[in-house]
Structures are given as structure tokens and as C-alpha cells.
Design a protein around this nucleic acid. Structure first.
Length: 248
DNA sequence: ACCCAGGCGGGCG
DNA sequence: CGCCCGCATGGG
């Protein structure tokens, strides 16, 4: 479920909300939060449809939504995501859930699934364990992040922080730089001001708005804030898929 | 044999 | 601040 969320849901109509709710075992209020059903997409689209490129992307992927996920889950997965591909991100994550995830049992006590491990569940894991799960050079980051998020910071108490302060706080976690911090802010806390700049978004912005000329991360951040304002997190998603799916 | 994959940390000028 | 480098691993 984590990766379905992180790879993003398609359009979600109210009509099949109860299906999602039942499947995830969540109350509809929780589902509404996680799928951002209170967002007024008409307002969002109006604000970010600033040019032909963005209008085309919106028409292409209309209905695509951001999701809001568990902060720790988001943090761990996006630490794993760095300099990596989706297939391996899924594999590494699955390995960690299988080895260290919490048991989900039925009424008889039979284990029917594994839940995503909390940071404290991973305290017993070693760097070698993370290596064995396939994390590679990220294993050390993960080990440090697990200890830090268990002992020194409570990710569940960062809601409501101003975007800039939240991002700065997240960047104190090992393996969390600017891009990953923005991913966590956007997809783990629902901060629509976050504009994660990965290779796809950087390439798309440079091509569509700077005639293909190279621009620094800082310059792109400033451009995004001016261009799409407080809804730039949504703009990022539409740019990401333009490049990712080669529709550019 | 190379190049890339939703970058980061550390070192340098 | 900007730039450069190494970093595990697997698939095109």
C-alpha cells in the first residue's frame, strides 16, 4: 500500500471511496485525508495552469492526486529512493517489511500480513541487515535515521509546522537532503508548498521554461514559487509525469 | 562496456 | 555558496 500511494493514485471518484476504504481497512475520514479529497481541484488547476505546458499536462493527467502518507514511512522510502529506480525501491522496501514489519493477525491470531515497521521496530536491525535487504550505500543512512527518529525526534509531532521550518527540521535526518525533505513534506505532511526537484522535474522545468538551459536547484525553487505559488506541489507532480512518461 | 536510476554527504575553493 | 566526487546495485 505504501508504494501504491507513493507511486500515486489515479483519479478517485466518491463512488468508489467505500471500496478503497474497505480495502485499506480505514475509516472514510482517514481515506479522505490520505487521498486529499477535500482539495478543490478546480481552484488548484486554476492556480497552476499558468502556461500551455502545464495546461497540456493537466489535460493529459487530469484527476491525478497527491496523497498524504505516514511521515516515517515516507521518510524511509524516500531515503531508499535516492539515486535508485522504482523497481529496486519496491524490492528493498518489501524486504524490510517482510523482515522487520509488525504482524497483522486475524481473530484467531494467524498472521495474515505484515505492517510497515516503525522506526523502533528497526532498532534491532544492523547496517548489514539493510545491506542484505539491498539498500547498498544507503544502509548507513537508514541505520542513522532509524536511531535518530526513534530517540531524538518525533515525526508525528511535526504537523502544523511552517513549510520552511519543517523542511529544515527534516534535513537534520541522515540521508535526507533538500529533495528528499521536500518529498517528505509534500507526501508525508501534505505541504503543497513543497516542490521536490529530482532529475525529471529539473529536466522538465529547464526544457519548458528556460529553453533547455541549465538552472541550479535554487533558481528552479525560486521560479516554482513565483510561477505556482502555494500549490506548486501539485505543479511538481504534473511536471514529473510529463518527463517520467516521456510526454514531453 | 557503458549509462542511468525520484541524491546525499563530505571536501574543496 | 557552488562545484566535484564516491557511493551499491541491477536493468537497458
Amino acid at each position: 500500500m505504501t508504494l501504491i500511494n507513493l507511486m500515486h493514485s489515479g483519479s478517485l471518484e466518491n463512488g468508489n471511496l467505500h471500496v478503497v476504504s474497505a480495502h485499506m481497512g480505514l475509516a472514510s475520514a482517514e481515506v479522505r485525508k490520505r487521498f486529499r479529497l477535500k482539495d478543490d481541484m478546480k481552484t488548484v488547476y486554476k492556480r497552476i495552469a499558468t502556461d500551455d505546458s502545464m495546461r497540456n499536462s493537466i489535460n493529459e493527467y487530469r484527476g491525478m492526486r497527491l496523497t498524504v502518507n505516514d511521515p516515517w514511512e515516507t521518510t524511509l522510502v524516500f531515503i531508499i529512493s535516492q539515486f535508485n529506480n522504482v523497481k529496486r525501491i519496491r524490492l528493498i522496501t518489501k524486504n524490510l517489511v517482510q523482515k522487520f514489519g509488525v504482524d497483522i493477525t486475524d481473530a484467531r491470531g494467524n498472521v495474515i500480513a505484515k505492517g510497515f515497521p516503525h522506526s523502533s521496530d528497526l532498532m534491532k536491525a544492523t547496517v548489514q541487515d539493510f545491506m542484505q535487504a539491498g539498500a547498498g550505500f544507503r544502509a548507513k543512512y537508514i541505520k542513522e535515521a532509524v536511531e535518530y527518529c526513534t530517540n531524538n525526534i518525533d515525526l508525528n509531532r511535526l504537523q502544523g509546522m511552517k513549510y520552511e521550518e519543517l523542511k529544515e527540521k527534516l534535513m537534520t535526518i541522515s540521508g535526507v537532503g533538500e529533495k528528499v525533505a521536500d518529498c517528505i513534506a509534500l507526501m508525508g505532511y501534505g505541504e503543497l508548498e513543497a516542490f521536490p526537484i529530482d532529475v525529471h522535474v529539473k529536466r522538465a522545468v529547464e526544457k519548458l521554461y528556460f529553453k533547455g538551459r541549465k538552472r541550479s536547484i535554487k533558481q528552479i525553487q525560486e521560479f516554482a514559487e513565483l510561477q505556482w505559488g502555494k500549490y506548486r506541489g501539485y505543479a511538481q507532480q504534473y511536471l514529473f509525469y510529463l518527463d517520467k512518461l516521456k510526454n514531453i
